[in-house]
Design a binder for these strands. Structure first.
Lengths: 182, 182
DNA sequence: GTCTATATAAAGATAGAC
DNA sequence: GTCTATCTTTATATAGAC
């Protein structure tokens, strides 16, 4: 570890790594500073609160989801749009495994989302758009189980060994089975 | 809240409620004491460490999984056994939603499991037994996505409204789709 | 079996020197 | 832009009175 570098492009990945391993609540600014080889004060120079760091780390993930939802809006509603959402989510979740794991799994995130209305909107749309047309009662359950399963790779060492392509295809396959893709 | 009651049968449900809402790392002994209406010292009279409380809260869930795995051992290996596991897990996860959510979702739990080998064994067996026979590459992924999805109800208010029976059937349905039940 | 009070460490956060 | 030093609060944990 090279000492004395708390630039944004180094700080945020370090924080993400710790959030993924210990959770947001289980990660202190001291741990982030140690990971970077700097003092806590150096971290505070870039972000005046811990919440600011959490938000900066997660923001790109929420933006990606929002962009995906926006992008598939031009497709016909129904199976085709659901398939595009599933494929897009699989691609993003595989490419940014830790980021999506924190966003979808960490119990501290709902509170953050509640404090930032801009974060909530994309997921509300996503959940609605992913629902199969029939099976009204259990459709939300299928969507929730798919989204929860999306981050299954995070903790499992056996799955961590899968290639991006294997994992992406596996996730899409599960999406097909749960969400009646067209 | 009646004041002055930190008996085990009151303490553990209160702790579980807080663990489910704020995560294990996000829950302090002060929060537990406040929830019970007693002082921190009263809590420490029953459990000398926080880890002791976490273990006492989660132990029944791990025991249930172990008992389930043990119970299905008499069934023929394969689809029939997988179905029994899925039905048993669905039943337990629905009945003890918060407990299973903490056990399967909280990032602090893997560290706890690592420190208590007796906790790890049942899940290793469970994961192995749940795997469909074919599809060797993505079978562990299907299992992991099912287990992660098992606790999807925890955070979603829309799903929290489902009855136990609706939820149980929905989970079994997803298990059927992912795990090639016989 | 609970309380108040306290010890000790670590948390989030700031001030001011370099 | 980072440092040391410090502040304040909160964390885990203990001692001893009731």
């Amino acid at each position: 570890m090279v000492r004395g570098d708390a630039r944004e492009e180094v700080l945020l990945p370090a924080a993400l790594k710790l959030f993924a391993r210990h959770g947001v609540s289980g990660t202190s600014l001291q741990m982030i500073a140690d990971e970077l080889g700097v003092s806590k004060a150096a971290v505070y120079h870039h972000h005046h609160t811990k919440e600011s760091i959490v938000l900066a780390v997660l923001w790109p993930a929420f933006e990606q989801v929002a962009a995906l939802v926006e992008r598939v809006g031009s497709l016909p509603a129904g199976g085709a749009r659901r398939r595009a959402l599933v494929e897009g989510l699989a691609e993003q979740a595989v490419t940014h495994r830790q980021l999506y794991a924190v966003m979808l799994r960490d119990v501290a995130v709902p509170a953050l989302v509640a404090s930032e209305p801009r974060l909530a909107a994309p997921f509300a749309v996503l959940r609605r758009e992913l629902q199969p047309d029939h099976e009204p009662a259990t459709a939300p359950l299928r969507v929730a189980m798919f989204l929860a399963g999306l981050v299954a790779p995070a903790g499992d060492p056996e799955i961590a060994q899968l290639s991006d392509e294997q994992l992406r295809r596996g996730i899409v396959d599960v999406g097909e089975r749960l969400l009646d893709l067209g």
